[in-house]
Amino acid sequence: MIGWLGPEEWQAVALSLKVSFWATLLSLPFGLLCAMALARGQFIGRDVLNWLVHLPLVLPPVVTGYLLLLGFGRQGPIGSVMDDLFGITLAFQWTGAALAASIMAFPLMVRAIRLAIEAVDPKLEEAAATLGASRMKVFSTVTLPLILPGIIAGAVLAFAKAMGEFGATITFVSNIPGETRTVPSAIYAFLQVPGGETSAIRLVLVAVAIAIGALILSEWLSRRVARRISGE
């Protein structure tokens, strides 16, 4: 793989994998919480939460990226506080790319987990409670095992989406080789220079392979949710 890809191309692939991995891992707990709240919660502002989660899906990615820059840039209200207190800057860093990717992938992740939660029969949770299980235990021993394939499917989808994120990423963290140049940014950059097509095509093949692999994996896991819940 390394021999087949040039060092610059390999750098982009490795960076994309790193960014997507962290984007997925860190958004998973929030995704689970949001999915739980949307599937089961009854509270004021549930609709607002639903919009917020889905907003990155319908907003132009460039707008999302620019909003991130305004908020998390060094001068932005959140970015300046993070810089002052923890010395963390996100803008023009790979961590910023991870943030952008996680926000863009969030709706897909929440949707997959939410569907899995909605497929769980609350009557099973009632039965567990009558057997002596507290709410936490009901969640960890009944709900969670039943939705686990859904969570994995959501994570795989989010990972694939993060791998392909371009608009928000390039607006928020630019296109710095080795720092923020992910596979899509690299493809874009290669296409801007004469003779870059071969590199671009190699990266396109990698991107296609990863996307298809993720879709197949996600589909297979979704089918397992259905089977697991029906008990077959």
């Binding site: 009558t130 095992p145 697991r228 008990g231």
Partner: peptide, 11 residues
């Protein structure tokens, strides 16, 4: 509690 439907845990 024994329900009308058995409500066994499928997993």
């Amino acid at each position: 509690y024994v329900f009308q439907d058995s409500r066994l845990f499928p997993h």
